[in-house]
Design a protein around this nucleic acid. Structure first.
Lengths: 200, 200
DNA sequence: CCCCGGCAACTAAGATGATTAGGCTAATAC
DNA sequence: GTATTAGCCTAATCATCTTAGTTGCCGGGG
């Protein structure tokens, strides 16, 4: 009985399990069962459990980039920052397993990772910072929304305040802080392209 | 041969392994070996692998609170914020396994978790925000430094810029954003005590 | 001083997961 | 139609977690 699997099919199925049962629920056994196949058959498509996790990380990063791109396109400054941040949170909460997979180390130099970095730098361009400061700012932005979503998804917020409200305050805070950056340049409309080739 | 183990000994040993080999390196086997004991003996002290991880999470949260308290004491505003943030990053980078364990769900209502929340709220007190805003701000602060350290420890920063510099910019950014908060009250020196009883 | 109860550690054994080796057969190439 | 590839299988090995039942050290009461 040919099940017609491919590497992509397998990794997609793993992502679905991760979103449903958590990253820990992804085992070669559970994955094989979900695909109607015995565990050893998976080794024809992925290198093993470790390779599977690395591919899951790559898939997650790629899907995140896909989700972020349209949010950033055509927006600038605080509008771009808020749109990107909201899209990220929404994606992460609807795909908790994929979001958790972002913490895994992808196999090699990940092109999607560079893409995400470029998108975040594009957001920072709206704040007219020097290039070097933009990189620090992009890291800060990524860290803040990443940490927030991890805490929220992990049940770290136990006071009654709604996480959604806190998130909007966080975005306001970041926006204010970036606007008041001491090195903000009044006009930098046509900034040179960022030369990022990896994660920020 | 009595090895003289206690629950604390066992969890401490697990934390040491986590810091050295990563959270994944903590298994009942490796832990037993490190303690000079056979795996089944551990069940006299911890309930099993799951219980061990929960206790590891509690230990990490408690040690984090221990580390933060002196940094916050006697400081206010940006000084308190920077001191707390630097202590956290330093602790996390020297104890990567314990830091990773913060993501695990502790057994029950964790008193240390409330303690950390209180310390973060104490930092926010220096910015003279209304109580409700202080909670949002504390969440933002925690999320930002937590996310940053996770990204840094996970190798998420691949551009040549030094992570340490980025961290200082993040702290500047947060400090500026909090100072310019629209609801900042000019004087609120003796604010009522926060009533947090759980994580922020 | 000696006995004894409890507890800490053991051995033995079963379950689940990862992985390798080797065989069988369905799809494809010519 | 045959040969070849490749997808899937069974069988078997190893590591880990866990439970059950056993042994023996250690401290307190006689």
């Amino acid at each position: 009985m040919r099940a017609g699997l491919t590497t992509n099919t397998v990794v997609q199925a793993a992502a679905a399990i991760a979103d449903r049962d958590g990253l820990g629920g992804v085992t070669m056994s559970s994955l094989a069962a979900a695909l109607g196949v015995k565990p050893p058959s998976l080794y024809a498509h992925v290198g093993g459990a470790g390779d599977l996790r690395a591919r899951l990380a790559s898939l997650a990063e790629a899907e995140l980039a896909e989700a972020l791109a349209p949010a950033v396109a055509g927006r600038a400054g605080g509008e771009a920052l808020r749109a990107a941040a909201r899209v990220y949170r929404s994606w992460a909460l609807t795909h908790p397993g994929r979001n958790a997979a972002l913490q895994l180390v992808p196999t090699a130099d990940e092109p999607s990772s560079a893409r995400v970095t470029e998108l975040l730098l594009a957001v920072m361009r709206g704040y007219a910072l020097p290039d070097s400061e933009a990189i620090h700012a992009a890291r800060a932005f990524r860290a803040a929304i990443y940490g927030f979503v991890l805490l929220e998804a992990g049940g770290g917020f136990r006071l009654p305040q709604r996480a959604e409200d806190s998130y909007e305050r966080l975005l306001d805070l970041l926006d204010r802080g970036l606007h008041h950056h001491p090195q903000a340049q009044p006009q930098k409309l046509i900034s040179s392209r960022a030369t990022a080739t990896g994660s920020s």
